[in-house]
């Protein structure tokens, strides 16, 4: 049984682990999985080491994500799971998958589009299309939202408020 565990399978199982704050995004969509290593001892027990990179320094979701990865792998027959945090290179929304961005949009959150090293000037904000009606006629309500990774916008066409996943 344990012979059947491969890193490909682990990546498959990680597709089932989502961000508790943005449940449509898997940890792979977010680009926070840096590495997966498997180690089998002589008794056939498998230890998995998963290297993740935190999004924001203080993001409380990181601890929950670590726990969910652990549970997902332990329930598949892996005996021991080590979660290691890697700070460098620092996480950026440039690592988010195209599929992840599409899922965000369908979920009602405007995805990050601008490249993270293309900094904004003071008093300048991202122009973001409304994820509901597609209108470009939107305005920023608050640069800080309910979680560290999101800002708040309002659509001036369909009048709906929405969140924008910040370019970071």
């Amino acid at each position: 049984m344990s012979n059947a565990i491969t890193t490909e399978k682990v990546y498959d199982w990680l597709q089932g682990v989502t961000d508790p704050e943005v449940p449509v995004l898997t940890v792979l969509d977010m680009g926070i999985i840096r590495d997966v290593q498997l180690d089998t001892d002589e008794k056939g027990s498998v230890t998995a080491t998963v290297v993740i990179t935190p999004t924001y320094s203080g993001c409380p979701a990181m601890d929950v994500i670590g726990m969910n990865i652990r549970m997902a792998l332990l329930s598949r027959g892996i005996t021991k799971v080590n979660i290691e945090q890697q700070l460098s290179p620092a996480w950026t929304t440039d690592w988010m998958s195209e599929e992840g961005k599409q899922k965000l949009k369908e979920y009602g959150i405007a995805p990050p589009e601008r490249k993270s090293d293309d900094a904004l000037d003071m008093f300048e904000d991202d122009s973001v299309a409304c994820p509901r009606c597609g209108s470009e006629d939107t305005e920023l309500v608050s640069r800080f939202g309910p979680t560290a990774c999101k800002s708040l916008y309002r659509c001036l066409s369909c009048k709906e408020p929405f969140e924008h996943f910040k370019c970071h």
């Binding site: 409380p60 608050s142 939202g145």
Partner: peptide
């Protein structure tokens, strides 16, 4: 205002996250 209340706590969280590391 609510937005600035959230702004400050977001910034606070960054500082505390950095402190934790």
């Amino acid at each position: 205002v609510l937005e600035q209340d959230i702004a400050l706590t977001n910034i606070s969280l960054d500082h505390i996250g950095q402190a934790r590391s």
